[in-house]
């Protein structure tokens, strides 16, 4: 095989790390959505790479489902962010502070 499995895994781990960094550090709701998308896509990359290497098709099946589900999830998330923007004129989650205790 031209590309070793380890290359794919390294890229996937890097994507996972960037995604977690994005969620942990950024305070902009859209940027946090980017981070979540990156984590899901790093898992998809893993699944497809493993699926080619093992080889069987289950991983690619799950990757397809996961792409569709991630799209649905982000659609809901963006809708929530738009509602928040209409209310606050801002999407900085540090400004959402009506719930405390």
């Amino acid at each position: 095989m031209a590309n070793a499995l380890i290359d794919f895994i390294l890229v996937s781990v890097a994507l996972l790390a960037i995604g977690i960094y994005g969620i942990a550090v950024k305070r902009n709701a859209i940027r946090m959505l980017f981070g979540i998308e990156m984590i899901i896509n790093s898992a998809n990359l893993n699944l497809v790479a493993f699926s080619r290497y093992i080889p069987n098709s289950q991983g690619q099946t799950l990757a397809l489902f996961s792409i569709a589900i991630a799209a649905a999830e982000v659609a809901v998330g963006l809708a929530l962010v738009i509602v928040a923007y209409r209310m606050y004129r801002n999407i900085d989650i540090a400004d959402f502070r009506s719930l405390k205790g």
Binding site: S12, G19, L33, G35, I39, N44, N46, F50
Partner: peptide, 16 residues
Amino acid sequence: ALSSGIIIYGISIAYG
């Protein structure tokens, strides 16, 4: 969404 991202990454490792 973060939790489901973590779950699918866990699934990918288990599958691998």
